[in-house]
Design a protein around this nucleic acid. Structure first.
Lengths: 221, 221
DNA sequence: AGATAAAAAACGGACGTTCATTTTTATTTG
DNA sequence: CAAATAAAAATGAACGTCCGTTTTTTATCT
């Protein structure tokens, strides 16, 4: 047999990783055997080792690929935000985080697998220095908002935005993976409104809030 | 041998569970064998099965015991809060949640094990209906605060308090388990101040904030 | 034929659990 | 008080299965 083309190899790997991902998510990493993966991917057991040196390597490859996807989707979300501290944009952030959690709920399970089995070595970058990253993306917007007097005195927008981001994430993860069905006692829509309001009122100046009064008043929790 | 006394059995089980807990946390559930547990607990392999019918049962017993402890500690925390929406009390809540996460960081790892291996069946109760529980604990305080005009119009204190609780939890969990070293770009103290301020300013009326101005002004992030 | 992919078989070890056996000890007996 | 008893506790070898990985064999292409 001649050497497979690069794309053919990539295609094979994709099917293997898809099968492995589904199994890891459904039954965990340790509970998933190489035989399970080979069966689901319709690849012989031995042949798996022509593509990956170890079982761990499959997991790592899945995560690396996934991280890229998530990274892009997050970038798209942030690109859609022109004025990060504006209430309507904060809410939009929440909405999009919700969609992201929903769309890739398996991904976050992999994160927990990583925490438990690999001491989070693959996912560390997700949270490490996240505030600085937001500062890089929105730094000038934050500064403008401050110079316009949109923020309460003494408020640094970057950690607030990060906190909002984290809160939205956590809300939907708890809803999706931890069985807290409507744990805020609100529908998702209401919860988004409630959280948005907290962060808006919590950090915006009275002057600025008046400006957004009309929008903000629609955020009835 | 006559039957062991109830307390002797409890003592034995405690040592077994302590050993198992340490191993589960260090290397995960599947990666921990019954032989590992028996060695660490200095109990013979077979004898383990005189105390627990299966390996799963050991895990379940650990969680049940742990849930009780955490439940009590949480109760103590909430008992120490007389006025839940007061900024200083919100901050105290955050501090205590931080201590709880720190003291029992292994417990939260078990929670992730439960999510992955048991579909969170043992931990569901942690988040299910949590807002209602807060309403039961602080309902009258929430009502009083509202009638005093401490809250912004339209703000329901219960989900806000829950959101604050969740945010504090998430903050410390990310710090402790997900390697987000100072992910808000702040020290823990500063982060507590920052988050407290968000929730205080986010939900308290101007009138009420003036009342707490002195305390609130010490919350410099 | 020669090279490479794919499949199958084989390997050594570890797994959860069982079980026949031995050890332990509170109670009964002399 | 000491010896015998009986029931429970403790043991560790053994069981059958499955694991990740390696090696060998077979099939498939230029």
């Amino acid at each position: 047999m001649p050497k497979l083309s690069e794309s053919a190899i990539r295609k094979r790997k994709d099917t293997i990783e898809a099968a492995a991902r589904e199994l890891f998510i459904k039954q965990g990493f340790h509970a998933t055997s190489m035989r399970d993966i080979s069966k689901r991917a319709t690849v012989s057991l031995g042949n798996l080792y022509n593509y990956y040196p170890t079982k761990d390597a499959i997991f790592e490859s899945i995560i690396d690929g996934y991280l890229e996807i998530i990274d892009e989707e997050l970038k798209a979300i942030f690109n859609g935000i022109d004025e990060p501290m504006e209430p309507s944009n904060l809410r939009k952030l929440g909405e999009n985080v919700g969609l992201l959690v929903d769309k890739h709920s398996d991904f976050w399970l992999l994160m927990y697998i990583d925490v438990l089995e690999f001491r989070n070595q693959h996912f560390r970058k997700m949270f490490d220095g996240i505030t600085d990253r937001f500062r890089k993306i929105f730094g000038s917007r934050f500064a403008e908002a401050e110079s316009r007097g949109d923020l309460r005195t003494g408020v640094d927008a970057a950690p607030v935005f990060t906190a909002a981001y984290m809160q939205f994430f956590n809300y939907f993860l708890v809803e999706k993976l931890f069985g807290g069905n409507q744990h805020l006692g609100l529908t998702d829509e209401q919860a988004l409104n409630c959280l948005t309001k907290i962060f808006a009122y919590g950090t915006l100046s009275e002057k600025s809030l008046a400006k957004f009064k009309r929008e903000a008043s629609t955020l009835t929790a």
